[in-house]
Amino acid sequence: MKDFKVLEIKTSVFADNNIQAGKLREELKEKKVFLLNLMSSPGAGKTTTLVGTINALKNDLKIGVMEADIDSDVDTRTISQTGAKAIQLHTGGMCHLDAQMTRQGLEGLDPDGLDVVILENVGNLVCPAEFDTGAVKNAMILSVPEGDDKPLKYPLMFSICDVVLINKMDVLPYFNFDLEKCKENIRLRNPNAIIIPISALKEEGLKEWTDWLHNAVISWCE
């Protein structure tokens, strides 16, 4: 009979990614670059929100954007028009970015001289929540047409986010969406989440969000 040994491990399957993400965060701290991981389902308004965010902050902060998608470069072209430094990342079919892919993206973008890099993750409420990208903060956008029950259906995504933006408030009258119920559902999963209703299209409610981001960048880069 062949000899064999059993290694008793009891470690998370994500252990290696978590180590890589921790290293990346330390390097970003040294370089004084703030990395924000922005997540949502497809079509929730990440790119429109980003355009408004960049326009509000571009006089105060040097901003870079990494657009992660399975294919195409439509978002990068939209973001480039704001004057922000932008790069398109193709995940080659993968539904999320991990810490190693984020590092490669940052190398391609070259964050030297930037204050903040925003990673627009692949549109998906499941996989991006499972992989620590190395970001300093996580934010997500839930849009009104998606429904107020999403925090119950995708609990991990809501539990890891520092900020939840509720977008498309301008179409609230046309949907069966209860804002207070939604906030309650988010707090069940994450009592500390900052919840900000916005309309990216109408540029409403963005100031509370951009103030939060500005302050988070300043305190990270001190």
């Binding site: 040994k5 998370s12 399957v13 994500f14 290696d16 990614n17 539904c95 991990d98 996989c127």
Partner: peptide, 28 residues
């Protein structure tokens, strides 16, 4: 169908662990 991505990440984690333990073959 995020299981493939999770397993890919797990392969990297196990690769590091077995290197530390000087193991080359994993049967199960």
């Amino acid at each position: 169908m995020h299981e493939l991505g999770v397993l890919n990440s797990m392969v990297h984690t196990i690769e590091r662990i077995v290197k530390e333990q000087n193991v080359t073959e994993v049967s199960k």
